[in-house]
Amino acid sequence: MGIEQKLGDMGIVTTKLEELVNWSRTNAMWPMLFGLACCAIEMMAAQASHYDMSRFGMELMRASPRQSDLMIVAGRVSRKMAPVVRRLYDQMPEPKWAIAMGDCASCGGVFNNYAILQGVDEIIPVDVYVAGCPPRPEALIHGIVTLYEKVKADKFVTPT
């Protein structure tokens, strides 16, 4: 199995540009090293040896938003932090995606109060929500694979 079989003798592969671009995007998606709360520890666990997210092309966590494609909002976003999160998101280059990891980032979780944003989707567009408090590393990986499926199905459209 592999690209060699598809190649045959010709050394040429034909594919759609769309598919090629999406394939390359999914296979080297760099998340931003950005932990907020408890979920960040599970995100670290997903990065570490036991779960090893690099199997999915994510060996690198970039601390700088300008080098990353994916923002994993891992944890609760407080009202004080919200402008910062938005600003970091704005600094990421297109194309960019966001995963809301954990109940807090998805909907406020157990903290229904004055200090916590009731879901990070109030400030940034979110592609995938991962439930759990905290989600297991497997759940996060599932979220990421789901995001890959979404990215693979992306269509090029002329901006209107």
């Binding site: 009202r79 004080k80 406020g108 229904n112 109060n113 004055y114 200090a115 009731q118």
Partner: peptide, 21 residues
């Protein structure tokens, strides 16, 4: 120290609402 500068009110007072949604 904890709340953003420029916030109104003092959250742990009993007459401050929980901010429940």
């Amino acid at each position: 120290i904890l709340n953003p500068e420029g916030m109104d009110g003092h959250p742990l007072r009993k007459d401050f609402p929980l901010g429940y949604e």
